Simulated scan of single mutants.
Amino acid sequence: MTNTVYKLCFYVPETHVEEVKNAVFEAGAGRIGDYDCCAFQTLGEGQFRPLDGSRPFLGEQGRVERVAEYKVEMICLESQLRAALAALRLAHPYEEPAIDLWPLTPLPDSPA
């Protein structure tokens, strides 16, 4: 396993943002140097339509639902990635949480 750093981004309803963030932090994500619990979050509006066979946390099958959600971004080392994703999915209220993941290119060293 490498020390690749990933940017982890997920969307979570306002009602569960702290619970989900804390679960992901406890799994090791959101650490930068001598700091932990590092994240950026933006409030917005998400939408989705539950299809047949779904078990939606919010809304009804066949009807578009709009909800206040936070977009939460943080970094995660590859060595903590599986645990962070498992914690996120376990704590998240949605049946299918929206998750984005990008490998990051290391920053060049700072000038002397």
Rank of each mutant, 00 (worst) to 15 (best):
M1A: 11
T2D: 15
N3I: 02
N3W: 01
L8P: 01
C9P: 03
F10E: 09
V12Y: 06
P13N: 13
E14D: 11
E14S: 10
E14M: 03
E14H: 11
E14G: 05
T15K: 09
T15C: 03
H16N: 15
H16I: 04
E18W: 07
E19H: 14
V20H: 10
V20Q: 15
N22R: 13
A23P: 08
A23D: 14
V24Y: 00
F25A: 12
E26P: 03
A29T: 04
A29Y: 00
G30S: 05
G30T: 04
G33C: 02
D34C: 08
Y35K: 11
Y35M: 03
D36A: 12
C37R: 14
C38I: 10
C38M: 08
A39S: 15
A39L: 05
F40S: 09
E45D: 07
E45S: 10
G46D: 11
Q47W: 04
F48E: 12
L51H: 05
L51D: 09
D52N: 08
G53P: 01
S54D: 05
R55W: 01
R55N: 14
F57S: 14
L58I: 13
G62L: 07
R63N: 05
E65P: 02
E65H: 06
R66L: 10
V67W: 03
A68G: 09
Y70Q: 00
Y70N: 01
Y70E: 02
Y70I: 01
Y70L: 00
Y70S: 00
K71M: 14
K71H: 04
K71Q: 15
V72D: 04
V72R: 01
M74V: 07
C76P: 07
E78L: 06
E78C: 10
Q80W: 00
R82W: 01
A84S: 15
A84L: 04
L85T: 09
L85A: 07
A87G: 13
L88R: 01
L88E: 06
R89P: 05
A91G: 11
A91I: 05
A91M: 12
H92N: 14
H92Y: 01
P93M: 14
Y94N: 06
Y94E: 10
E95Q: 13
E95I: 03
E95R: 03
E96N: 11
A98D: 08
I99Q: 04
D100L: 12
L101M: 03
W102Y: 11
L104G: 09
T105E: 15
T105G: 09
T105M: 13
L107A: 15
D109F: 07
S110N: 08
P111M: 11
P111K: 08
P111W: 11
P111L: 09
